[in-house]
Simulated assay, not measured.
Amino acid sequence: MSADFPLAILAKAPIPGETKTRLIPVLGAEGAARLHAALLCHTLKVAINATAAHQITLWTALDHSHPLFLELADRYDIELRAQPEGDLGDRMHRALSTMKGSGLLIGSDCPALTPTLLAECHDALEEAEVVLLPAEDGGYGLVGVRHPDARLFQDIAWGTAEVMTTTRQRIDALGWRLSCPARVWDVDRPQDLQRLALGFPRLGRCLKVE
């Protein structure tokens, strides 16, 4: 299946010691970076089966010309853009603000995303001003908006279990309707690795402990 809607992906370059740092005690710096790279490749495969390649932008961080970024851009004919300065909220707002029309934004560590779910999330924006996929850790794995507004992302303690709760408060303050088509999980903590290995054997091969 393939639709045609804007989709932004935020991703760090898979540099050992700089990515998936909470997994380093289990996988080692090289192993954590290798898993991050595999998750990003998986995310791009999902994205390219959900929407048109020209609608996908990979927003890069750490090393904007990393070989993996260049390889993915060449393989899928997607656009690369450097993430701007600022906190996560600033960067998400910038990515959403560059879209022509309503669109979605995701990270690179949520294997539960599928092309069908992405399409459902975009369809939800026909009735709601914002769509979120709440994550089990208290954050969210996807955000989509009909019209970007920086206030949605202001004064949020990113990386904490309160992200989703606080974001709901921002949505209420804006008077927006919210749609949450599903609940998801991401790969960020050691306890997520067993689920990844069981549910995604191909990605599980990256879990060699160093």
Rank of each mutant, 00 (worst) to 15 (best):
P67S: 10
G204N: 05
Q191D: 14
T165N: 13
I171P: 04
L7Q: 09
I48R: 14
A29T: 12
P111A: 04
A11I: 02
D123F: 01
R202L: 15
P16T: 12
L80T: 12
L174E: 08
R151C: 12
G107C: 10
W59H: 10
I9G: 00
A119L: 00
N49K: 09
P134C: 10
L27V: 13
S2E: 11
A47P: 09
P190Q: 05
T167L: 08
T165F: 07
V187K: 06
V130Q: 03
P16H: 13
L193Y: 05
E162K: 02
L193V: 05
L23F: 02
L132K: 00
T19C: 13
D90R: 08
D4K: 04
P148M: 07
V163D: 09
E79M: 06
E162D: 13
L132P: 00
V131P: 05
W59L: 07
G89V: 01
R205H: 12
S102V: 12
I56F: 03
C206K: 02
F5A: 05
S2W: 02
D155Q: 08
S65G: 09
G144K: 03
M99T: 09
G101D: 11
S2M: 03
V130M: 14
G204S: 13
P115C: 01
P6N: 05
W185T: 03
F5N: 02
G159K: 03
T165L: 13
L207H: 07
I156L: 06
S2N: 14
R22Q: 10
E162L: 08
D87S: 09
R202G: 10
E85A: 12
G86I: 02
L80F: 09
L88P: 05
W176G: 15
L68Q: 13
W185A: 06
E129S: 15
E129Y: 06
I171T: 09
P201A: 09
D4C: 07
L10A: 11
A157C: 06
V187Q: 06
T43D: 06
A11K: 01
D192V: 00
T166L: 11
T43A: 08
L62V: 08
Q169G: 15
C180I: 06
P6A: 13
C121N: 02
E30K: 14
G17C: 06
L207V: 07
L96V: 03
R34W: 04
P115H: 08
T19D: 02
T60M: 08
D137I: 01
R177W: 12
L113H: 11
V163W: 00
T21Q: 15
V26G: 09
C121Q: 07
A8M: 03
T43W: 00
E71Q: 15
W176M: 12
F153W: 04
R81C: 10
V46R: 00
W59Y: 11
S97T: 12
H122G: 12
D90T: 06
H93S: 11
R75K: 14
A119P: 03
Q154N: 07
E126Q: 14
R75T: 13
R168P: 07
C121K: 03
